[in-house]
Amino acid sequence: MIQPTLGIPYASRRLRLFIQVVRYATLMEACQTHGIHPSTLTMQLKRLESDLGGPLLIRASRGRQVKLTGLGRDVVEAVEVWAQTLAEQPGKPGPDRSGALHGQGAGARASSL
């Protein structure tokens, strides 16, 4: 599912950002925690949605919790499998105890919203 997207410039960075974001109840909370400007986050999420062919999040009004779409849940699951595959390959970066990918600076695990 995410394999074709990985060939697009910066797509893996956007995937990692998405996985970090879904850990938070609101997009604003994710922005504040990671020091990302809201417009930058929104632009990156829209680009990832374009890369993957559909919406990943159901955006709520200000201060309300965002929810994953079916595609969003599928992407989280696919990234978790991808991270696990990397972890099992000798000499390749894999998830550390926090779920972040070594040398890749982003989370690989996310809880469902």
Rank of each mutant, 00 (worst) to 15 (best):
S50E: 12
E88M: 11
L52F: 04
Q20C: 13
A78K: 08
V21M: 11
H34Q: 14
P90E: 09
H37G: 04
S61E: 13
T69H: 13
L86E: 14
T5I: 12
A11K: 07
K92I: 14
S50G: 11
A25K: 08
A11M: 06
Q20F: 05
R47Q: 14
Q84C: 02
L52G: 04
F18D: 01
G54P: 05
K67A: 14
Q32N: 12
W82F: 14
A11C: 15
Q89Y: 05
G7M: 12
A83N: 06
E88G: 15
R47M: 09
T85M: 10
S50I: 04
L56W: 03
Q84F: 01
P4W: 01
I8H: 03
Q84P: 01
W82Y: 15
R13F: 07
Q65I: 07
L17H: 07
L6P: 07
T33R: 11
T69D: 06
L56T: 00
T42Y: 11
G72K: 06
L57P: 02
R59G: 04
Q65A: 15
P4N: 10
L6C: 10
R23W: 10
T5N: 05
Q32G: 10
T40W: 00
P90C: 06
Q89F: 08
A11H: 08
Q65T: 13
G53A: 03
Q20T: 09
R13I: 08
K67L: 15
H34N: 10
G91N: 15
P4Y: 10
V66N: 13
R23I: 01
G72F: 05
M28P: 05
E77Y: 10
L86M: 15
H37I: 08
G35K: 09
R73C: 04
R64G: 04
A30E: 05
L6N: 03
R62P: 05
S39K: 11
S50D: 13
E49T: 02
T33N: 08
Y10L: 12
R13N: 12
